[in-house]
């Protein structure tokens, strides 16, 4: 079967700034693609092109079998978009918003009202009554935004950073809503800066940097691409970090990373068990106090660092979702 979303060699420039530099994506029907990349990677530009808001300079894109440039009306009739800002009317109530958008989707007044009622129930907004959206929490606003893009039950849904700026509770609410849609068979393209979000929601992940895909695969496959497991050593005392790093480097033959806050040294390993036993012995011999030691699969943060040579958009000082 033909994929539901295809882009081939999408290019887009804003003045001298290259936003998309030959982007290739495919999303099969009923699956979730997580487009993962730091700020400025070109995620929003790609979503805007796929939702007919922006024309590409070059390349080709199809959604549900329709060309986004030549058949924008057909595309619009079959998609839902949840943009980076919650695009709802702040002054109106949740119900008024949904009825308004329902009318603009050309539902009759009665049908728009009925559909609004269904969606309010489904997204747990029924008890907001006449309250204006501007008094909603971030999570409620996002859920309303999501509800508004589902009025016609689109087969394809685009979510551009759906949880950016939400507190952990709002994030959990939105994740639950997205999982519900996926279970009902909706094809989803979702962009995110959060590695765990892609890991949680996506069947496949496309890692995007400076306008192109630099890696693509299932979350599992991406992790093993990095070269298997990692050895983690947590110390009693951060002062011992340099010494421990030296020991780990000798044992694994790789350059370890150290994290002073977590008092942790970690490095990729090839021979799992040998590396672990060697490390335990060598650390003991060097009289370095170890709190915890173990093997684990790499995180997507490490995948990103490995692929791009630089860290993702959010640094250690910014809030990272749990």
């Amino acid at each position: 079967m033909k994929p539901t979303i295809v882009t081939e060699g999408l290019r887009k420039r804003f003045g001298t700034k290259i936003a998309l530099d030959g982007l290739d994506l495919t999303v099969d029907a009923g699956t979730v693609l997580g487009v993962l990349g730091p700020n400025g990677a070109g995620k929003t530009t790609a979503v805007r092109i796929l939702t007919t808001l922006l024309r590409p300079d070059a390349g080709h894109a199809e959604v549900a079998g329709f060309d986004v440039v030549r058949q924008p009306d057909r595309v619009r009739a079959g998609i839902g978009l949840v943009g980076q800002n919650a695009a709802v009317d702040e002054a109106l109530s949740a119900r008024q918003n949904l009825e308004l958008f329902g009318r603009l989707y050309h539902l009759s007044t009665a049908a728009a009202r009925a559909r609004a009622g269904e969606l309010l129930d489904r997204f747990d907004l029924a008890d907001t009554g006449g309250k204006a959206v501007k008094r909603f929490s971030g999570g409620m606003r996002r859920r309303l935004d999501l509800a508004a893009s589902l009025i016609l039950s689109p087969k394809v849904l685009f979510l551009d950073e759906p949880t950016t700026g939400l507190d952990p509770r709002g994030r959990t609410e939105v994740w639950a809503a997205v999982r519900g849609l996926v279970a009902a068979g909706t094809t989803v393209l979702l962009t995110t800066q959060y590695l765990d979000e892609a890991d949680q929601l996506a069947d496949r992940i496309a890692v995007v940097d400076t306008g192109k895909v630099i890696a693509e695969g299932t979350p599992e496959a991406l992790k093993s691409d990095l070269g298997g497991d990692r050895l983690d050593v947590v110390l009693h005392d951060a002062a011992a970090l340099p010494g421990a790093a030296e020991v780990v480097a000798t044992v694994t033959g790789a350059r370890p990373e150290t994290d002073a806050d977590a008092r942790r040294v970690s490095a990729p390993v090839r021979d799992r068990v040998a590396a672990l036993t060697d490390a335990v012995r060598a650390l003991h011999d060097a009289r370095i106090g170890v709190e915890d030691i173990g093997l684990r699969r790499p995180t997507l943060d490490e995948v990103f660092l490995h692929l791009t040579g630089h860290l993702t958009g959010h640094g250690a000082d910014e809030e990272v979702p749990a």
Binding site: L53, R76, I79, L81, Q84, A86, A87, Y105, A148
Partner: peptide, 12 residues
Amino acid sequence: RGVTDRFRSMPM
């Protein structure tokens, strides 16, 4: 607010 974009992405 992105409301214009929402209108533009709809089949209205």
